[in-house]
């Protein structure tokens, strides 16, 4: 009976109702892939904006990821071990950049680091100009992408059974030792998948970068911005860059799906979690 309900939705089988959405997600990608011949792609890749944008995107997104992991891991660990009330408040703040439009975040970053911004005077006195620089690209990517890593790492840390940590402590480990030798390896798969999602988000960042860092070739013109620029002059270049991004996204997603196999020993027993 239940099986029947799951397979039918009104007069048509459920699969038919599910098709439009699936097609809407798939068809544009298929269209993109079919829009250029290999020679078109090759020509597009010869466009002078292609390589600098590819290099800048690779460089900035990896630096962003490094910043996100180094600064986000302590925050995620703190959130996992905080009281439920503290966690609720901080989770709300951390998740804000996901729901705020990237363009708004770009303006917010300008209001913080711009000449007239909140911290503008401090940076100016140090002779550092952040807006419209590569640092601005990295800052924009960190702000929009960090929540994905922090969310995932916090969940992974919360799944670590606190008894593991207490046993590690009674076996002579200080809090840092218990974290590094027990919590970190157990949470690693969740941290890696969060880092991958975060990196993908940083790589695709457009709105905040455009407003906060501008669209300067070799300095702030990352691949999404290069697509935007190329659309005005050479659509083949735009398609070539887009296909590179699609390929990266596909490899990343495939890698994430294979992730649980990385350390099968940890998957079954790491349960209990910091639920309080």
């Amino acid at each position: 009976m239940g099986q029947t309900h799951r397979q039918h939705f009104g007069p048509l089988p459920l699969a038919l109702w599910a098709c439009p959405m699936l097609l809407l997600l798939l068809v544009p990608l298929v269209a993109l892939m079919g829009s250029a011949s290999p020679s078109d792609i090759w020509t597009g890749m010869q466009n002078p904006i292609f390589m600098p944008a590819l290099w800048l995107s690779a460089k900035t997104s990896f630096v962003s990821l490094l910043v996100i992991v180094l600064a986000g891991t302590p925050l995620a660990w703190w959130m996992a071990t905080a009281t439920p009330h503290q966690r609720k408040v901080v989770t709300l703040l951390v998740d804000l950049p996901i729901v705020i439009p990237p363009a708004v975040l770009g303006i917010a970053l300008l209001q913080t680091f711009g000449r007239q911004g909140l911290l503008g005077d401090i940076f100016q006195s140090l002779g550092i100009q952040i807006p419209f620089s590569t640092s601005a690209v990295i800052l924009a990517q960190v702000v929009v992408a960090a929540p994905f890593y922090i969310q995932s790492a916090t969940t992974a840390f919360r799944r670590v059974n606190p008894d593991f940590l207490w046993v590690a402590r009674t076996l002579g480990q200080k809090p840092a030792g218990a974290f590094l030798q027990v919590a970190l390896p157990l949470a690693l798969p969740g941290m890696i998948s969060g880092a991958a999602l975060s990196w993908a988000r940083a790589l695709g960042e457009f709105g905040a970068t455009l407003l906060f860092a501008g669209n300067l070739s070799e300095t702030t013109q990352t691949m999404p911005l290069a697509i935007y620029t190329a659309m005005e002059s050479d659509v083949r270049a735009a398609v070539a860059i887009s296909l590179v991004l699609v390929a990266v996204a596909f490899v990343l997603l495939l890698g994430l799906r294979l992730l649980p196999a990385v350390n099968p020993q940890t998957t079954a027993e790491n349960e209990g979690g910091m639920s309080s």
Binding site: N161, D163, F164, W166, V167, V182, P185, Q265, A268, E269
Partner: peptide, 9 residues
């Protein structure tokens, strides 16, 4: 502890 908490990794 209850459940033994052997480190799964």
């Amino acid at each position: 502890p209850q459940g033994y908490a052997l480190f799964p990794h």
